[in-house]
Design a protein around this nucleic acid. Structure first.
Length: 756
DNA sequence: GTGTGCACTTAGGAACCCTGAG
DNA sequence: CTCAGGGTTCCTAAGTGCACAC
């Protein structure tokens, strides 16, 4: 192994999101192993790069904790060792060194036993308080909702009262609140933002009492190509029927994308395309290779070029039109409040592009007609009219769900929905609740960890598997891993669906004992690669689970997510596998912020610390991105700026020096002043330099890490808000406008002493 | 238990847009 | 004023988890 250290260069390997393909199958039956041919094309590989600097520092910081249990994390960059499939790939490894730190950070390292949280038993009582809502209420008291921190009691009381006042009113009103009614009040709302988090929540599954909206916006009709744009078959121009032509344009638009060269894509496309053809076309167009779409493709390129060249006025006009649509269709009224809709447009037809090695890539995604649309709204609302000459498939009034519109999608046969924006009450409450559940886990995580450690010794295989899987979910923040239907989507796995071929055991590696090497494709076919030292008992169990199995067999053959979640539910009310991800992400952020923030540093440095804490989480959760295409170049540019700034500084220093010398001789006011101003100039430049350097570091460390996903979905926003307050960092530096809207509740309620 | 449908969250990349350096 | 580049928004795929039928 050691050879592998490839790493020196940064570039690293990439991990590819590749896909290998094996398919495997269901548990217990035999599995066929089909190997797919293909190589991954150039799928882009991603690699994770870890910045050494970063690592060091964190390592340092964590040193102490390290000692505690395992230090794991050593991740090397991996090399190809996997013989099987991946070998050819350029495997790249993703080195996630940073992983190291996170572990400690999140407290795993600490010995299990422990006392730790005072109220650890808090979560013991699983079953009763069932209603989530209730739960929240309870919690409320503990996390001090609003600003007033003085006397909680009073506050609480008062709050309740307020609610009492408000609520009944509202609710009743809503009830029959006619549309007009609703709208009216809505109007003024913008001025004072509605603080839904100060109101009572619905219980028992009701999501709203009143809901009115305008229905979806459909994709524009197909506009046939000008007749001068020709399609050629076997070298001869051929006029296509509109339907056939439309589908052809979908392909033409993707012509320079790599997947139009993939066999599966072409095969799926051609099959679906033929279904749209007239019988005459069908008889002529029998070979995709003979189809020439280049003229069509050129035409679209020219069009998009033309769009770019439009005058300001034209652009403005388009913008206004979009704004008009947004105003008309982009909002709904839910319980007396105007709320923004997330996606009010029906997905336009096109060719399906799955991620990774998707068996359905290239299939035709059909155009959706009003006759396929289900509208959901309240009975007493104004029901949106279907487009002229059409009718809806159905209008229903189900207030136990949050969606406004739904339709069936033809590729996977799943249902698509139009729902509200993250800033809405309905999404916000749920989000808040999610973090409350994670905080509840915090209170009993030690107990749970002890429990699964005990279970490693169980006589029952099923329990052992469950315990080891849970350990991975907790320690490595793996996803649950539901089973998927083979052939319906790319071959990806999560914890419960790991196969023997996804891990390798090393009794000893690089001076560490019991190392497990993970290498698999997770959600979105993003590669997860990690080498982790585990406890001996876990290691032995893994050996046992792998005995007598083929590579394509399930590692945890007695386990699935439903068994696991059922167990978790018994341990803590509301607990599921994904809560561990939320919990570990948030606690890691909190701990990293504590460790990395230096009170004496200036604003940019503090922000860098924040980003590093955020990055530690992103690494933990394996949130990768393709390095921006312009990455190298932009890095270079930055470096150039830094260099020139340095030159400026030395020049400026020289001037200062000579001014000083001058002042020594002359000793008059004027020269003194001159020295002062030169001094200032040097300082200013140095500050600018620092800023640039911080920026460079931040960017470099972020090369293939995506911070957005964790920030949006895993980090309790109150942690960030509290940190901003504590260190006087403007919240705008951390959250942009959209994010501030989504997290308005947290921004309003978290104080600087908020503890996750 | 298993299989299936449904609702809803989480995810990365493309498209779009804005800004600040030159 | 232009244009690159980086942030933001849009888009929709791909997950999780629960309920329900058998």
């Amino acid at each position: 192994m050691s050879g592998d250290q490839l790493h020196n260069d940064s570039q690293i390997d990439s991990g590819s999101r590749t896909n290998d393909s094996h398919k495997h199958k269901d548990k217990h039956k035999d599995r066929e192993h089909k190997h797919k041919d293909h190589k991954k094309d150039k799928e882009r590989e991603k690699s994770k790069h870890s910045n050494s600097e970063h690592k060091d520092s964190s390592e340092k910081k964590n040193k102490d904790k390290d000692k505690v249990k395992h230090k794991d994390g050593s991740s090397e960059k991996h090399k190809d060792k996997h013989k099987d499939k991946r070998k050819d790939e350029k495997s790249k490894s993703s080195s996630r060194e940073t992983k190291i730190k996170k572990e400690k950070e999140n407290g795993f390292a600490s010995p299990p036993q422990i006392k730790a949280e005072p109220e650890s038993n808090h979560c013991l009582s699983p079953k009763h308080n069932k209603s989530l809502k209730r739960e929240r209420d309870d919690d409320d008291t503990d996390f001090k909702p609003k600003k007033i921190k003085i006397e909680n009691e009073k506050k609480a009381k008062k709050r309740k009262q307020d609610q009492e006042d408000i609520k009944p009113k509202k609710k009743t009103k809503d009830k029959r609140g006619t549309a007009a009614d609703g709208k009216k009040r809505v109007k003024k709302e913008p001025e004072e933002k509605w603080k839904w988090w100060e109101e009572e929540r619905y219980t028992d599954g009701v999501k709203w009492k009143f809901l009115e909206h305008k229905g979806p916006v459909f994709a524009p009709d197909y506009e046939p190509l000008p007749s001068k744009v020709k399609f050629y078959y076997d070298g001869k121009p051929m006029k296509l029927s509109p339907q056939t032509e439309e589908v052809a344009t979908f392909f033409a638009k993707m012509l320079d994308h790599e997947y139009t060269t993939k066999d599966i894509f072409r095969k799926n496309f051609f099959k679906d395309w033929r279904k749209e053809m007239t019988s005459e076309e069908k008889s002529i167009l029998t070979d995709l290779k003979k189809c020439d779409f280049t003229e069509m493709s050129e035409y679209f390129k020219a069009q998009s070029e033309a769009r770019k060249q439009m005058t300001k006025e034209e652009k403005l006009k388009i913008k206004e039109e979009n704004e008009r649509l947004l105003q008309e269709y982009g909002f709904c009224v839910m319980d007396n409040h105007k709320e923004r809709i997330a996606n009010f447009r029906i997905e336009p037809p096109g060719l399906f592009r799955g991620r990774g090695d998707h068996p359905k890539m290239g299939m035709l995604k059909r155009r959706i007609q009003p006759e396929e649309i289900i509208i959901n709204c309240s009975k007493d609302s104004k029901i949106p009219p279907a487009p002229a000459g059409h009718k809806w498939k159905e209008v229903r009034h189900d207030n136990k769900v949050t969606w406004l519109v739904s339709w069936n999608e033809n590729i996977q046969g799943s249902i698509k929905y139009i729902m509200l924006n993250p800033s809405s009450r309905i999404k916000g409450e749920k989000d808040w609740q999610k973090y409350e559940t994670a905080r509840k886990l915090k209170k009993c995580v030690d107990r749970l960890r002890n429990q699964y450690r005990e279970d490693w010794k169980s006589k029952e295989m099923k329990i052992r598997q469950r315990a080891v899987a849970l350990y991975f979910i907790d320690k490595l923040a793996l996803r649950a891993g539901n089973e998927k239907e083979e052939g319906e989507s790319a071959d990806t796995v999560g914890c419960c669906s790991l196969r023997v071929e996804h891990i390798k055991l090393y009794p000893e590696m690089d001076g560490q004992e019991f190392v497990v090497e993970f290498d698999f494709l997770g959600k979105d076919s993003i590669r997860y690669y990690n080498k982790v030292p585990v406890e001996k008992r876990v290691f032995k169990n893994l050996q046992l689970f792998m005995e007598n199995k083929q590579p394509e067999d399930d590692l945890f053959d007695r386990l699935n997510t439903s068994i696991l979640n059922k167990h978790l539910q018994e341990l803590m009310d509301g607990l599921t596998a994904k809560v561990f991800r939320t919990y570990n992400a948030s606690i890691t952020l909190q701990q990293q912020l504590k460790e990395l923030t230096n009170p004496d540093e200036n604003l940019p440095a503090k922000i860098l610390s924040y980003n590093r804490a955020n990055r530690a989480v992103a690494v933990l959760c394996n949130h990768q991105r393709a390095p921006p295409k312009t990455f190298e170049k932009s890095m270079q540019n930055l470096q150039t700026k830094i260099d020139s700034k340095k030159d400026q500084i030395s020049a400026s220093r020289r001037e200062l020096k000579s001014a000083k010398a001058d002042a020594k001789v002359r000793r008059d006011e004027k020269t003194k002043k001159c020295v002062e101003s030169k001094k200032k100039a040097v300082q200013r430049l140095e500050e600018q330099l620092m800023k640039l350097e911080v920026q460079a570091t931040d960017r470099e460390e972020n090369k293939q890490i995506a911070l957005g996903t964790s920030k949006l979905n895993y980090l309790d926003p109150r942690i960030s808000v509290a940190w901003c307050k504590k260190w006087d960092v403007p919240i705008e530096k951390i959250y942009n406008k959209t994010q501030r809207e989504k997290f308005a509740w947290a921004i309003d309620m978290a104080e600087e002493d908020y503890e996750f």
